[in-house]
């Protein structure tokens, strides 16, 4: 079987197990599972464990989500609590948003 490169390649940088980190992880997982199912690859990096990774990407704020694929690359900072804006930032089309409606969201 042919190995297909996932359509969405995402990296989420967090610092430790703070409430804000947890919130960002939960919000992002929900978006991925409900909209990008089987079309994404997500890596979560804890900067406390791997500070060099943050150095390489020159990350200041956390949480930071980097969308590597599809291009253009994009960065979103914050706990990702406003899903409409997150989708906009990830360049996910509107029809996907409709699918999401009604979903519960970790907010604040």
């Amino acid at each position: 079987m042919e190995v297909v490169m996932p359509e969405f390649v995402l990296k989420l940088y967090v610092v430790g197990q703070t409430a804000r980190s947890q919130r960002a992880i939960a919000n992002l997982r929900q978006i991925c599972e409900s909209i990008l199912r089987d079309r994404y690859e997500l890596r979560i990096i804890d900067i406390l464990e791997d500070p060099e990774a943050a150095e390489v990407e020159k990350i200041l704020a956390t949480p930071t989500l980097i969308k590597l694929q599809p291009i253009p690359q994009r960065r979103i900072i914050g706990d990702l609590s406003d899903f409409a804006k997150v989708l906009e930032g990830l360049d996910i089309r509107k029809k996907n948003q409709e699918l999401l409606q009604g979903g519960t969201y970790a907010n604040g």
Partner: peptide
């Protein structure tokens, strides 16, 4: 960083910077 556009969605802190400085 000029290459990537940054969007702000929700709360954030400079924890990454602090971790990098400490490192």
């Amino acid at each position: 960083q000029t290459d990537a556009e940054t969007l702000v969605v929700g709360d954030y802190d400079l924890g990454a910077l602090l971790a990098r400085v400490e490192h």
